[in-house]
Design a binder for these strands. Structure first.
Lengths: 111, 111
DNA sequence: TTCTTATGGCCTATTTATGGATCAAACGTG
DNA sequence: CACGTTTGATCCATAAATAGGCCATAAGAA
């Protein structure tokens, strides 16, 4: 058997890979070497390689750091860049409870 | 002295916090308890709490996993949801070199 | 081509995150 | 209000990420 590290869903793995690709592209666009990015991010060269490879075991601190340096922004200064930011409306209706009164064991799923 | 864990830039820390907030909102919207989300994500309850708090020390695997479950998608099935996805054009022009010939020690910065 | 450098993979020591339990306080409901 | 539940925070043992080296190979420049 290979190495059953920490299992992640296909989506999570895919998302990590895509983010890694974005970072790599951003780095290359800026003519930076992996070593240079590593130095600026304050991490090791190997870690940058794993981040660009989409390793799900990297901390978001390191990943977001690298992303920021090469210009990949998931969030646009103050506003979230999401497909559906319609959600922001609902928060006013619900007024976000702090504790959830769960009765239904199985939440309505969708993926 | 406080805790000088792994230093991260303000942006990276902020991005992590925002993502955590999105996850929390998504969870509450779906009437899920922290424990329920933890179980579905296959992680501990404490980890979900740290993720929602924006702890930069969490692995992207765990964070993206939680995000996916509560419906927070940074990437829209096949297409990246970024402010500037114009970049996809450039990759055809440049044809992305695999190795960077760095001369300039200091890359053109912007933030 | 030849040379120089970037990259990627592997390894090990160390640092760190994670799981699991526990506890107190806050919360929602009847 | 009083109840049961959720949340948040802490502690510790353990699993895992990270640093940092090394080496082989690929890639760009002359």
């Amino acid at each position: 058997m290979p190495k059953a590290k920490r299992p992640v869903s296909p989506y999570a793995a895919d998302a990590a890979v895509r983010l890694g690709q974005l970072i790599r592209r951003g780095r290359i666009d800026r003519h930076m070497t992996v070593a240079a990015l590593a130095e600026r991010a304050g991490v090791s060269r190997g870690l940058i390689q794993r981040i660009e490879a989409g390793d799900t075991g990297c901390t978001i601190g390191a990943v977001f750091e690298a992303a920021a340096i090469v210009g990949v922004r998931l969030f646009d200064a103050g506003q979230v860049t999401m497909s559906r930011d319609v959600e922001s409306a609902r928060e006013l209706l619900t007024l976000l409870p702090k504790a959830i009164r769960s009765h239904r064991t199985e939440p309505d799923d969708d993926f």
